[in-house]
Nucleic acid binder design. Structure first.
Lengths: 262, 262
DNA sequence: TTGATTATAGTCGCTTTGACTATAATCACA
DNA sequence: TGTGATTATAGTCAAAGCGACTATAATCAA
């Protein structure tokens, strides 16, 4: 298929003729803990931003796509694997990293709480969960606004032990990224199957469990009956989800158990 | 704010320690011509993919953000400026460019037809408009599927003079990109103000004109009355758009002229 | 058996939406 | 100066969607 001209060109092509920015991937892991939406951050143990909280990530290698790099870094830094990663946005402001020019392709993932590994023995850096608070300007659309609307007084995250994390405690432009990711996730919740990714076992879940996911992500209570009606309409009627049994051991009436069809 | 350790680290940081992929921006320009949604492509005049059609784009410079690079390349390659660019997705498959590892941050823009410059004297490479055909799997959500679903028999584009462009006539992975962009655009049409970007003059347009935009993008006729009701509800009631006059010189009843409030 | 608890089912009214009909404002032309 | 063609705008109607609410069902504990 290639002409001789093409072949010659490819042989002689010199990739070093242009300066190139570094390219990283960052992976924002969301989970649900104590009925609240939480984000996983890592405390930086080296400059820049030493001591601040950051989204896990790292440099992309020459022999892997960004998707592959994201999966690799996620596993390396948090031990999580086998989850669906979704590309969020690419951040490229020239001064977003004080070291050098770094462009970051950011992914996010919805992960069930029991897939997270913490503490000693996990071989994983000091990662911690933070509850996501109110996001201002909670509209679905619009770009992430890389402009510096980072107001230090604005509380975005709260540690699991209650301490509040100000914007200034977050490294790089990661506060902006978190805000944007939360907005996107809330928006996508009701026209994608994103919510299922939070389930411990999407082949055996109840509608109340799924509703808890939605309530945590949206940060507001949902009517049980209406939620049921909607999910049944959207997924069960269409065959994407089917009932596979009845819950055992429950307080109150046992719920029907559903499974997502692969 | 920086500690002494941070300063020292930054002084000693060596950015050459990692291999880095090239980073480009590509800009997919959509417009509406003869009531059809069209994409602007450029015929490649050098390898690789010489003679094939490609989305305008180029390398990002070290002193500009991807947004800035996209605006610059758009102007350089098509003469278009002053339009809103929206980031679509970042494509990073390792073999997507035969020369070397290239990661491309893709943008798209909705541009009124009269902003396009063609032919001699424009100082612009041979650009041409192609009508967008049916996109298979026309759902809104989901990733762009970089997997090779590029079926050569699938007609994606049609030249303005009628010739059909097969997938194999499109350079790089740009067919995938176009498909994904069209899907996204159709999805965003009714929950963003994207449609207005196609208008020649968003401070003096009629609802029938706006409806033509929607019909072209969605590729189906819309009921005039219902469209009017919806737009009035969404934008005029909310103050985003207001009536500023009545159309002159029309066949049939003259339409009201509206303006988008800045 | 009773009450507490929780899932599921059903009702009601309001809003949205698609299809359709009616009316209004212009022009061309006899 | 009508009259019809043309196109914008207005209104109607029924079905679907959705939030709030009530009713019922299935379990457990006492």
């Amino acid at each position: 298929m290639e002409s001789r001209l093409e072949e010659q060109y490819l042989r002689e092509y010199d990739p070093s003729q242009f300066d190139r920015p570094s390219v990283t991937v960052d992976i924002l892991v969301f989970t649900i803990c104590q009925k609240k939406l939480c984000a996983l951050l890592i405390k930086r143990d080296m400059p820049p931003f030493i001591g601040k909280w950051a989204i896990p990530g790292g440099f992309i290698k020459m022999n892997e796509s960004a998707d592959q790099a994201a999966a690799r870094k996620l596993k390396e830094e948090t031990g999580i694997e086998g989850v669906r990663l979704e590309q969020l946005y690419t951040f490229s402001a020239i001064d977003r990293d004080p070291r050098t020019r770094v462009i970051s392709i950011v992914y996010f993932a919805a992960v069930p709480y029991d897939k997270l590994k913490f503490g000693a023995g996990s071989g994983v850096k000091s990662a911690e969960l933070f509850t996501v608070g109110q996001i201002q300007g909670d509209s679905v659309s619009g770009p992430p606004e890389e402009t510096d609307d980072n107001d230090a007084s604005d509380i975005l995250l709260t540690g699991r032990n209650g301490e509040e994390i100000a914007i200034t405690d977050i490294a790089f432009d990661h506060a902006t990224i978190i805000r944007y990711a939360v907005r996107r996730m809330r928006g996508k919740l009701d026209y994608t199957e994103l919510g299922f990714d939070f389930l411990k076992d999407s082949s055996a879940f109840t509608l109340p469990e799924l509703r808890e996911v939605y309530e945590a992500v949206l940060d507001r209570p949902l009517d049980a009956g209406n939620f049921r009606r909607t999910i049944l309409m959207k997924y069960v009627s269409g065959g994407r989800v089917r009932q596979v049994g009845i819950q055992k051991e429950s307080v109150g009436r046992p719920a029907a158990v559903y499974s997502r069809t692969t």
